[in-house]
C-alpha cells in the first residue's frame, strides 16, 4: 500500500493505505483522532468535517491521497479547553450539544466560515450551515452560540 504524508493538527504524519480510502478512516483508525465522526459516508451530514488547508471538507468522501502534502486540522487542532476557539467557548456557555455526535461538523464548518465572514447575518449563517444535520434539534442553540462567538470575535 502506498504511503501518504501530511500534517494533522501541527504534527507530521504518514499513513499507509489504499489511495481511495477516505481520509476519515486514516484519521480515526491509523492516527487515533476520533473527533471527526462517521455519520453517513456520503457527505450529507457533516459529522466528519475537518479543515484541509483551512477549508472545511467532508473526510468521509475525501480520498486520503488528496490530503497528501497538505495540512489537516481537526476539532482538537482548532482549540482545547485551555485555549478554546471562540466558537467552542460559546458552545460550552450556551450548553449546545445534546447527543453531541454532530457538533464536530457544526463547529468546524462555522469556524471556517466566520474566518471569511465574521459579521455574517442570521440569514447568511443559516445558508452557510446548510447541509449539516443535527438530529437532537439543537439548531436554535447553535445559532445562539455562533452569535455569541461573533460578538467575541468582533
Amino acid at each position: 500500500m502506498p504511503s501518504f504524508r501530511f500534517t494533522v493538527d501541527g504534527r507530521r504524519v504518514s499513513v499507509n493505505a489504499e489511495p481511495e480510502m477516505p481520509l476519515l478512516y486514516a484519521l480515526r483508525n491509523d492516527l487515533g483522532l476520533d473527533n471527526p465522526h462517521f455519520g453517513c459516508g456520503l457527505a450529507q451530514c457533516g459529522a466528519c468535517t475537518v479543515h484541509l488547508d483551512g477549508e472545511p471538507v467532508r473526510s468521509c468522501v475525501l480520498p486520503v491521497s488528496a490530503a497528501s502534502g497538505r495540512t489537516v486540522t481537526t476539532l482538537k487542532g482548532l482549540g482545547t479547553p485551555d485555549k478554546p476557539h471562540p466558537l467552542q467557548a460559546a458552545y460550552v456557555e450556551e450548553q449546545v450539544p445534546q447527543c453531541g455526535y454532530c457538533i464536530n461538523g457544526w463547529v468546524m464548518t462555522a469556524a471556517a466560515y466566520l474566518k471569511k465572514n465574521p459579521k455574517a447575518s442570521d440569514a447568511q449563517l443559516r445558508d452557510a450551515l446548510a447541509g449539516l444535520k443535527c438530529r437532537c434539534g439543537t439548531h436554535v442553540a447553535i445559532l445562539r452560540a455562533i452569535k455569541r462567538a461573533q460578538a467575541r470575535l468582533a
Binding site: 460550552v92 450548553q95 457538533i103
Partner: peptide, 17 residues
C-alpha cells in the same frame, strides 16, 4: 451539564471510539 465540554472539545469518547 457535565457532558457538554468533552463533546465540544472532543476530549472523551463516544461508543464509536
Amino acid at each position: 451539564r457535565r457532558d457538554v465540554a468533552w463533546k465540544v472539545y472532543g476530549t472523551d469518547r463516544f461508543v464509536t471510539d
